[in-house]
């Protein structure tokens, strides 16, 4: 009986979908939706298109006008890519390494924390969860000055100065990034059936083995999602890094920020385009690995 209704419903739905597909192009609603989407996505992408387009544009004449970018470009050139200052390339590499390290470390801390939070039964769990989630609520600027002052204080007492070093940036970003891993892994764990693990133990696997062979593979999409968000948090951050960075250890967004505050130079457009290209690659990889849909679904938790 139940299957009968089910098939009926499905065929009804298919017919409806087909009919809707045939009609869709011609309804007023469809036209308005398409226009709305075009308008919003054009506005959303315009800055990026201008940056990438501008990075290929040659100055209009031989009198080099540094502060001039023609868009749309009339003559194309790769000059700006050759002229990217070394400091920006260095910062781009540094940002990449930092974000990678932060993503790994956030997983090392966040995955056990998520397992403990979801499975543990103990007094004060709510408070523990609140402490672990707190960084999400703190405005980034506040985290920035808080860490700078903490590092000053640690330096005064121990002589180890963390401000302006890559370790300082690492700690600051780790603080911001870990809750994302805890959130996404926790979301997957809550759906996970502990019986699977028990079955593995009954069949003779040790606890570690069942963890490695059963639990970890199942929560892998959650770990990947969390690691990706951790990477992004570190890779795009300005408000924390601007307090903790120094000429020796600067992330790319901060370097670009200072470059924009000082003077305009089209080679900044070129390095920004490289960063944007890398971001596109990252989107493609995440679509391939977990799918954008599940990436966003575990974010809402």
């Amino acid at each position: 009986m139940a299957t009968h209704i089910n098939t009926d419903l499905r065929s009804f739905k298919t017919e409806r979908t087909v009919a809707r597909g045939l009609r869709r192009r011609f309804t007023l609603r469809g036209i308005v939706t398409v226009i709305y989407f075009c308008a919003v996505f054009t506005m959303l992408l315009a800055p990026l298109i201008v940056v990438i387009g501008g990075s290929f544009s040659a100055p209009p004449n031989d009198v080099v006008v540094m502060s001039y970018v023609e868009f749309p470009p009339e003559r194309l050139t790769l000059d700006w890519y050759r002229k990217i200052p070394e400091s920006q390339l260095k910062a781009l590499g540094f940002s990449f390494a930092l974000a990678f390290a932060v993503a790994i470390a956030a997983c090392v801390i966040g995955v056990p924390a998520a397992i403990g939070l979801v499975r543990g039964r103990f007094f004060g769990k709510g408070a523990v969860a609140a402490v672990l989630r707190a960084p999400l609520q703190i405005p980034h600027v506040v985290s920035g000055i808080a860490f700078l002052q903490l590092f000053y204080l640690i330096g005064q007492y121990s002589g180890i100065y963390l401000q302006g070093t890559s370790w300082g940036l690492f700690l600051g970003h780790l603080f911001m990034a870990t809750p994302f891993v805890i959130g996404s892994v926790g979301a997957v764990l809550q759906r996970f059936n502990p019986r699977l693990e028990e079955a593995a133990v009954i069949l003779g696997a040790s606890r570690w083995r069942s963890l490695y062979r059963v639990t970890i593979p199942i929560i892998m999409p959650g770990i990947f999602t969390g690691a990706l968000y951790a990477f992004i948090v570190s890779f795009v951050d300005v408000p924390v890094a601007i307090f903790l960075a120094s000429p020796e250890a600067t992330t790319f967004p901060v370097e670009l920020f200072h470059a924009m505050e000082q003077d305009f130079n089209p080679s900044s457009l070129a390095s920004a385009s490289l960063a944007a290209l890398f971001a596109m690659l990252l989107v493609a990889i995440s679509q391939k690995c977990v799918g954008l849909d599940s990436l966003l679904k575990s974010k809402s938790k």
Binding site: F37, V51, V238, F257, M260, A272, A276, A279
Partner: peptide, 26 residues
């Protein structure tokens, strides 16, 4: 769907500094 979602995700994978850069030129 995937293309449009990817675009949305992309804009938050790019640091705001780059977007502001583009806005100032526009």
């Amino acid at each position: 769907t995937t293309f449009l979602l990817g675009t949305i995700v992309l804009t938050s994978f790019i640091t705001t500094v780059i977007q502001i850069f583009g806005l100032i030129i526009i």
